[in-house]
């Protein structure tokens, strides 16, 4: 888990799973979520395991989120914008999921 030190910058609010989170400009979406105490980012694509941020530098693709309706966005590389709507990345729905 993480906590925020006093933040500098212009206030920005974003929506995560229907919750309003306060953050500041210049932060990545991943950092804003972690700083607000959110750890669970997505379900893994194959078996739906819980996953979260791993590298924070654009390498691992573990921090994928649905941002403004677009799935699988690399949230450690995307800066927050006022009013962004963010959801956890769900595993895609396949008819034959049990066997996938």
């Amino acid at each position: 888990m993480f906590k925020k030190l006093p933040q500098n910058g212009e206030k920005v609010s974003i929506d995560f799973e229907g919750k309003r989170l306060e953050t500041v400009t210049g932060q990545t979406v991943a950092a804003a979520l972690l700083g607000s105490g959110e750890m669970l980012f997505r379900e893994s694509a194959v078996t739906g395991q819980p996953r979260s941020v791993y590298c924070m530098m654009g390498v691992c693709f573990e921090c994928l989120l649905e941002i403004d309706g677009k799935p699988n966005q690399q949230s450690c590389m995307i800066l927050v914008q006022e009013g962004m709507k963010i959801r956890r990345q769900q595993r895609p729905i396949m008819e034959n999921h049990a066997s996938a």
Binding site: L5, N8, A31, G35, P50, C55, M57
Partner: peptide
């Protein structure tokens, strides 16, 4: 190592420097 809460060591450094966010607990 895929569990949420397991991270690359430098990730916390990036969080600290880029966002002023530090581990709790």
């Amino acid at each position: 190592w895929t569990l949420p809460g397991v991270m690359a060591c430098t990730a916390v450094d990036v969080l600290y420097k880029s966002a002023g966010i530090v581990p709790k607990g």
